[in-house]
Design a protein around this nucleic acid. Structure first.
Lengths: 353, 353
DNA sequence: ATTATTTGCACCATCGATTGTGCACTCAAG
DNA sequence: CTTGAGTGCACAATCGATGGTGCAAATAAT
């Protein structure tokens, strides 16, 4: 790649060209020139020069001076699933509409990586940080607080900063109930046929498990916890859990509560290894929404977490000077099988053809 | 959010604490101290102080001085689909392994937004830029070149910078052929039953259409171009195209070549409006891979674009001092129905449970 | 005409890190 | 004792933008 290119123009270049001082140029170009009582004609002169020479401010210099960067961060566990990627999409739009620059990074649900990533972001003087699905929101809080950075938890709550999360308990109740009721009353689901797969020991999983357990107890019967199989957030671990179950029982449970779309991918991997008939009669409830997942051959009931509302609430809170450290629950939505919902992409105009 | 927090420590603070000059502190902390013949004991002293006071460098200041930031950018059209989100995931891992900081941003396939976004990135002195799926790679090239920023096109080629793209022509040939051959020889697909939906007038779409057309001519017969329906990259437009078709013909074509998973979502939306039976006999080929898409009730043949290889090649090229401005084709992979491939998430360890 | 205001802008320190230059000191060789 | 080489570090300029302060010229008030 050619490394030449005549060094981007600076306010000093424009200062010489215009015969004004650099501070005048700066004031004109950052909009504070009226406040500084710069003549309109001077402003125009400089603006024209800036345009001719394609001036753009060096944002690192500005950020250094202001100790703010105009960057707003979103920390994700992973990019590669619909829940988080649509959150990223919404986040970008929101941040842009506030005139800031969105920065989305992922940290693989690894506490060390999370800390390191946040430290890096802080070193760039990001202005605000949205922490989504962090394994350790409270240590992130400590870092942010020391640096004086406004921050907020999304999806997984912390105890030291305000949090906006999905109402996992209610969502799990709705989902569990929908799974059970999906069965023909003539041949209803039996307690030993309803299992939960996926998740781990995080707040979201615990709440979902609690909702699952409560509804299962109420509508069917809750015997032991054998029907709850946390497998982590990994397709492969989930697949192995299904394989193990199938090995033991010779079939899958008819009713499946799957903790997330990532775990659902584990079921897909299992399915790829087994004949179609193995799934003739199953009903899946998945705590996440994926449009393709909704149209599989068997009934898939999904929960769409309302990341738009979550982000909207988060933006609202982060603007407050001293938001209460509390958890805000956003109700998710039950999505019946074969439903194609609109997503953030729908607000993008796609002209031409 | 509390705005206090005792201002992060700087080299000047450590300079006072250690009794050394700021330049010595700087040298010690950025690793150049041997070159500057600093005593080992001095280095240790300063390193300990740095640790005690949780010093981290202000990267904006460093970037300003060096006119490099340590940031590497990836510009995407959108986050919210599996192709691009998995590209983002792979990109992050690669950039991190080079000791840099990944920045992923999307620009909605809007040329203006692309330009504005790239200008912002340049203003932060990003070191390198990967431009994926840009509508207007050549104007982006102009910007980058003026700023002396190494850059490379991915997914959609430009004429002024090296490009790494998927071999859309070959991929489309494979996909078209696989669709046709999926049908029972006893009741083969007829020319008027094979349609292409989606895409627009970009390089990828044109190549895919060319591949589609060539194979269709060779194996069936290519009459008019009525069987090619570019609908843009929008689920809704695609849905409307299907509705219109259905309105006219009373059914869908039995063989469908769908240009991308985004367009495939348009088919889902159509499906949500119509009874199951409408799709009893269709075969879909989709130029994109989505694990859930692969397991739908009808056969879905997919193309997985090898974004890992594309990125690997792109990283290789961008390191070269003067890479040739040519297009590198990366062969994609045909994915048979009901296949669950591994993705970038599989390389993430998910401990605990 | 003289003093008081207002207008228009230049000057300079500052943000934090980097780096070329050079000075003072130690130690050994002559 | 002088010279030369090497050691260890400090100084100061620099990256580009910002904003407080102050000063001269233009205009208004008396």
């Amino acid at each position: 790649m050619k490394q030449q290119g005549k060094k981007k123009a600076t306010i000093y270049d424009l200062s010489i060209l215009s015969g004004c001082s650099a501070s005048t140029v700066s004031a004109v170009l950052n909009g504070t020139w009226r406040k500084r009582r710069i003549k309109e004609s001077t402003a125009e002169l400089i603006q024209n020069l800036a345009e001719q020479h394609q001036y753009t401010a060096n944002l690192q210099a500005r950020g250094l001076r202001n100790s703010r960067s105009g960057l707003v961060g979103l920390l994700l566990p992973v990019h590669d699933n619909r829940y988080f990627s649509s959150m990223a999409q919404t986040f970008e739009a929101q941040v842009r509409s506030h005139g800031k620059c969105p920065v989305v990074v992922s940290a693989s649900r690894d506490p060390r990586e999370e800390i390191a990533t946040v430290e890096t972001l802080i070193s760039y003087s990001i202005d605000e940080l949205f922490v989504a699905g962090a394994t350790d929101p409270d240590s992130i809080h400590t870092l942010c607080e020391a640096a004086g950075i406004r921050h907020i938890n999304i999806d997984l709550p912390g105890t030291k900063a305000p949090s906006v999360i999905s109402d996992n308990y209610q969502g799990a109740r709705m989902l569990t109930e929908a799974i059970i009721q999906r069965f023909d009353p003539a041949d209803p689901l039996k307690p030993e046929e309803l299992f939960l797969f996926g998740g781990r020991n995080d707040h979201a999983s615990r709440e979902r498990i609690r909702g699952f357990r409560d509804i299962k107890s109420a509508l069917l019967r809750m015997d032991t916890d054998a029907c709850i199989q946390p497998t982590g957030y990994s397709p492969n671990m989930t697949q192995k859990a299904f394989e193990a179950f199938y090995e033991r029982e010779g079939k899958l449970p008819r009713g499946l509560f799957i903790n997330s779309s990532i775990n659902f991918e584990g079921l897909l991997r299992f399915m790829a290894q087994h004949p179609h008939e193995t799934f003739a009669d199953i009903v899946v409830g998945c705590y996440d929404y994926d449009p393709f997942g909704s149209f599989l051959a068997f009934p898939v009931i999904m929960i769409r977490q309302d990341s738009e509302s979550m982000l909207a609430k988060a933006f609202e809170l982060i603007e407050e000077s001293r938001p209460a450290v509390k958890i805000h629950l956003i109700p998710p939505e039950l999505v019946h099988p074969r439903t194609a919902l609109n997503g953030p992409l729908d607000s993008i105009r796609d002209v031409d053809a």
